[in-house]
């Protein structure tokens, strides 16, 4: 069987370097299989997060040959194995060790977004009537597996480190799912502008490109939210009305 070389980033916050590992490659293998083989054969302490190995949990995000991907869904036959394949951790988050980063910021951000608030039920038995046409958009947003690859490539976070002022594409998708839920009755538009930094996004669409669930993040989540912010805060008629009503 053929062998391939994987150049894996090893180290922690203080220091680190790429280290080459050679391992056997068989039909159908994905990058995560190679990492597991390396763990079993040569580096049992190689740190890597994974769970489902089927692209459904979003744990094994990494940068493979510089491209942000899920290791479990990246087949080796899509890579050039004639030279070493580089595997490194996501760059927008602090490193824990090897391929594992500290993504806890994302979990803190989610808590700052107003939770789901159902409107009054439609039927006497306390249930709602919702039509299939109205759930397509929120269902697209709810496909998100929280791999945080979109956060990783967003330049507002990756290059400008605006983590305190900007919630990132993942949480615009989350907010969009809530705002588009036909049963939800909350208003998150003021927060988007004032607390969540939606203005920082200049629609470069990097997030959409890397989404393993193929969510059209920019077009279907962020732009509609930006439009709501504009409607609410920058509509000249509304502004005029505010002057008179004081609201």
């Amino acid at each position: 069987m053929a062998k391939a070389t994987f150049s894996v980033w090893r180290g922690d916050k203080s220091a680190g370097a790429f280290k080459d590992y050679s391992t056997e490659v068989s039909e159908g293998m994905v990058v995560l299989d190679a990492v597991h083989q390396i763990q079993a054969e040569a580096a049992p302490d190689l740190a890597c997060r994974w769970n489902c190995k089927a692209g459904k949990c979003g744990s094994c995000s990494a940068e493979i040959n510089g491209m942000p991907k899920l290791m479990c869904m990246t087949r080796l036959n899509t890579l050039d194995l004639s030279k070493p394949v580089t595997i490194e951790p996501m760059k927008a988050f602090p490193l824990v060790r090897d391929l594992v980063t500290d993504v806890s910021w994302n979990f803190r951000v989610k808590k700052t977004i107003k939770k789901f608030k159902p409107r009054k039920p439609d039927a006497a038995d306390g249930t709602w009537r919702v039509h299939n046409d109205d759930i397509e958009r929120p269902q697209e947003m709810r496909k998100c597996i929280e791999c945080f690859l979109c956060q990783n490539v967003c330049h507002v976070l990756r290059d400008h480190a605006k983590h305190e002022e900007f919630i990132g594409p993942r949480f615009f998708v989350y907010t969009a799912a809530l705002e588009m839920n036909p049963i939800d009755d909350e208003n998150r538009v003021d927060d988007l502008k004032a607390k969540h930094g939606i203005g920082y996004c200049n629609i470069t669409k990097c997030c959409t490109k890397v989404c393993p669930e193929h969510i059209t993040i920019t077009d279907n989540a962020i732009i509609p939210l930006k439009e709501r912010v504009v409607d609410e805060h920058y509509d000249p008629l509304k502004k005029l009305l505010k002057v008179f009503t004081g609201k």
Partner: peptide, 19 residues
């Protein structure tokens, strides 16, 4: 199941709009 919907789950629907 109905409680999940009240907590934000978005289920596929019947033609008359139920789960």
């Amino acid at each position: 199941v109905r409680e999940l919907e009240a907590w934000g789950a978005v289920f596929d629907r019947t033609k008359d709009g139920r789960i």
